[in-house]
Design a protein around this nucleic acid. Structure first.
Length: 796
DNA sequence: ATACTAACTTAGGAAGCTATGA
DNA sequence: TCATAGCTTCCTAAGTTAGTAT
């Protein structure tokens, strides 16, 4: 760790989630920005603005300080250290001797040259493609060509074990622009055809038997009647339109006119029954079905890539259904049609056997393109999106691009100081375009915002950095910026951060009239131009790299809080906290589980229970050793939250539980005695016990009850010891509660899977002697095999 | 430039599975 | 011994980015 200390830790967004069914979310505002303001703002105007701003402490020095604190926490927040790191010149990062030039001249030439080359190659490829001749490179590593030369008959037999041992990451060739030399696979699996059930729809009180095609669509909806989707008017409208269309096509004389008169309940009931039947099956039956399914799917699960067996990811063609667009997606609820083999393109090695299409059908197209990684593709009808079948996350191809991604982020780490200096300088550039770019970059870097492409109005209205509109940003002088917008997946981002004076000033300029709330904040900026600029700063640098970099870097930094000689559980807790900091940074949210509130209450009760027990111990201590208490008044501090009222209800519930327990014990004891052939315990005995408890309960109710001292033969020492034990318990439960509350809306998985360099985790495990299984589930261990061999001192 | 397209990564919800504890 | 909390896994939607066409 050389330049770490001055690395700013980005802000943590305190965001709230707006859950989907967008019915009430932001009204979509048309963006019609009139481009009458000049492209490049003249210096004079900027200067004028700058003067009028009169910012009190516009020191540039704070460019390396965090914008805001993370969620306050006991183990110490994020620290800021003075900036000091030595500059790492661009030249070094790029592994080329060029002069690190501010305007990037040298670099630009180089990049251009490279791009040119790449393009030419591609053109050649295109030609070959046109001839249906795939580009099978002969220049790839000898290992792989050997394998491919071997021929598959042999490969099938003895490669099994070798597969698992293939450590592609030791080859150290990160260029994967040619994805494979040989590729064999079995194509895709289509969903089963629709099996009509014959249950009618009720329309306006009358039963209507539906033709299979219409019945299928009705059944899609029937399965969703009590989800949020069915309450979303857009979803309903879209569904109903498409349903009517299908219905009219297959039974033109149907009477269905209004959605409100449709009643799907018979179908819904039928579906529920089917589910019940399924879950009522014995586990043996279930297993038989599962095994059967596995067997029929096995051929699709794996492919052979460069002679090695690799797992395929989503080999199933997406089944028909109702499109579940998120947020207020204008097309949500529309019918997603069944995909036919004729629509599917298969990509496969040239010599490989072409998989059989389903009987009576043929494939749309067969291609042999080894510069892409997909095995099959088709177009979906709702949004015209292209769908692909890719390899699984633990495949070599995915692993390679993952490794590449993190290496790029590490490269950024090496030149982040320079990049930051560059945009900090540009914050005060004389041109509008440079200022907007610099300001956007500042936000992307410090807040981990996404790039924010422009979107059409046939999708949900969500934004990222470049597509922010005035309405999403509120300025609170002198330097606080308030963000509130819907990001990817319509997840709400709410954050309030102090920013650099220059940034604040710029944002104020960008918000000036005649712009209106619905106009773009960065009207001179596009993601393309931004990324082009970034590429000049560091080859391959794009907006998203900042997210990866900041996430991994923050994580590594936060892991420093791991207790050196704590238990494994404590270390894992520290790990999860670091993970959570990253998740909060990236605004990875999840919806609150229905049970959350009750669960929290339960924990709160447990906390009070422990406090109560500790209170009793303290009272006993007061009696046993009043001298000690006098000397240490803090030792007997009052327990807050443990009110008389709470104690009463607690004691009553305890008494009730005791009664139940006594009954159960009596029954159980008798059962045992019966088995042993011994005489039963009299019921009167149980009644006596219950009576005693009832009396206790009465006393509790009247307030006469006096709890006895919890400790027999108590000494000061033993009491203090017991108090300490309870305190520890309390501490642990309280941490758990805080943890749970903080995790309520935070999803840790996304950052763990996509943003945090797994080598950080692997090294941490080794350093702290924590088994990797404690932090990675099976699938992640597989996905990150390539990362697990690092040594304990590896740093991001 | 700008629009469109292709290929890939990132994302949350739902389904499914499992440990756990009343 | 079942319910169910708390995961993981599956699914597919929704982003980003590079490249191509206009």
């Amino acid at each position: 760790m050389s330049s770490d200390d001055d690395m700013p830790l980005s802000t943590v967004a305190a965001a709230t989630k707006v859950v989907g069914n967008g019915a009430n979310s932001t009204v979509k505002v048309k963006r019609e920005y009139d481009s009458d303001s000049s492209d490049d703002m003249p210096l004079s105007r900027t200067k004028g603005a700058a003067k009028s701003m009169k910012s009190s402490s516009s020191s540039d020095s704070d460019s390396d300080t965090p914008l805001a604190q993370t969620t306050a926490r006991a183990n110490g927040g994020l620290k800021t250290s003075p900036p000091s790191s030595p500059d790492i010149p661009l030249a070094k990062i790029k592994d080329e001797p060029a002069t690190p030039s501010r305007n990037g001249n040298t670099t630009r030439t180089k990049v251009k040259a490279e791009k040119g080359t790449r393009k030419r190659v591609k053109v050649e490829n295109e030609k070959k493609k046109a001839d249906k001749k795939p580009r099978i490179t002969r220049t790839t590593s000898t290992a792989s060509s050997k394998v491919s030369d071997k021929g598959k008959s042999e490969a099938d037999n003895d490669d099994e074990e070798e597969d698992e041992e293939h450590k592609w990451w030791l080859a150290q060739d990160l260029d994967n622009s040619v994805k494979w030399t040989t590729l064999e696979h079995s194509g895709v699996l289509f969903p089963p055809s629709y099996q009509p059930h014959g249950i009618p729809l009720i329309y306006d009180g009358k039963r209507i038997k539906l033709e299979p095609d219409a019945e299928e669509v009705a059944t899609f909806f029937a399965a969703m009647v009590d989800t949020d989707h069915a309450k979303n008017p857009i979803f309903v409208k879209n569904f109903f339109n498409d349903f009517l269309e299908v219905l009219t096509k297959c039974q033109p004389s149907h009477p269905v006119k209004e959605f409100e008169k449709c009643n799907f309940s018979l179908i819904t009931k039928h579906l529920t029954k089917e589910k019940e039947i399924k879950s009522a099956m014995t586990s043996a039956e279930k297993k038989a079905i599962r095994d059967e399914k596995m067997k029929s799917e096995e051929m699709y699960m794996y492919c052979t890539l460069n002679g090695r067996k690799e797992k395929v990811g989503n080999f199933r063609i997406e089944p028909p259904g109702l499109f579940r667009g998120r947020g207020s997606h204008p097309k949500t609820g529309k019918l997603k049609k069944r995909v036919m083999p004729e629509q599917v393109t298969i990509n496969i090695g040239e010599g490989a056997k072409i998989p059989d299409p389903p009987p009576g059908h043929s494939w749309g197209k067969i291609i042999h393109d080894n510069r892409v990684s997909w095995l099959a593709t088709w177009k979906e009808n709702v949004n015209d999106n292209i769908k692909y079948v890719f390899l699984a996350a633990d495949s070599s191809l995915k692993g390679q691009s993952d490794l590449k991604k993190f290496e790029k982020a590490r490269t950024l780490k090496g030149c982040i100081d320079q990049v930051r200096r560059e945009y900090t300088r540009d914050l005060k550039d004389k041109t509008m375009i440079a200022r907007q770019r610099a300001t956007a970059l500042y936000l992307i870097d410090r807040l981990a915002l996404r790039a924010g492409n422009e979107k059409g109005d046939d999708v949900a209205d969500t934004v990222g950095c470049c597509s922010l509109r005035l309405e999403h940003v509120t300025l609170k002088p002198p330097n606080i910026v308030h963000f509130d917008f819907l990001g990817k997946d319509s997840i709400r981002y709410v954050n309030e951060v102090p920013v650099d004076a220059a940034v604040f000033k710029n944002l104020r300029i960008f918000k000036k009239e005649p712009k209106t709330e619905a106009d773009l904040l960065f009207d001179r900026l596009t993601t393309t131009s931004l990324n082009k600029h970034l590429d000049r700063l560091m080859k391959g640098l794009t907006a998203k790299v900042f997210r990866t970099f900041n996430a991994s870097f923050t994580f590594q930094k936060q892991l420093e809080n791991t207790p050196k000689d704590g238990t494994v559980a404590e270390k894992v807790l520290a790990y999860n906290r670091a993970n959570r900091d990253v998740a909060i940074l990236c605004n990875h949210q999840r919806s609150v589980s229905k049970a959350h509130e009750t669960q929290m209450e339960k924990m709160q009760d447990k906390i009070l229970e422990v406090k109560y027990k500790r209170m009793l111990l303290k009272e006993q201590l007061k009696e046993v050793d009043p001298e000690y208490v006098k000397k240490h008044p803090r030792a007997c501090k009052k327990e807050d939250g443990v009110t008389k009222k709470w104690i009463k209800s607690y004691l009553i519930s305890q008494a009730k539980k005791d009664k139940e327990k006594a009954e159960k014990k009596w029954e159980k004891d008798n059962e045992k005695l019966k088995e042993a052939g011994e005489p039963q315990i009299e019921k009167s005995q149980l009644k006596d016990t219950l009576k005693a408890i009832d009396e206790r309960m009465a006393k509790i109710r009247s307030g006469e009850y006096e709890p006895g001292h919890p400790l027999k033969s108590a000494t000061t020492e033993r009491l203090l010891d017991a108090i300490k034990k309870q305190s520890q318990r309390l501490n642990s439960i309280e941490t758990q509660a805080v943890d749970k509350e903080e995790n309520k809306t935070t999803a840790l998985g996304t950052s763990k899977q996509n943003y945090i360099d797994p080598r950080i985790s692997a090294a941490w495990c080794k350093k702290h002697d924590v088994p990797i299984e404690k932090i990675f589930p099976k699938t992640l261990i597989n996905k990150f095999k390539w990362a697990l061999e690092v040594d304990k001192d590896w740093v991001f």
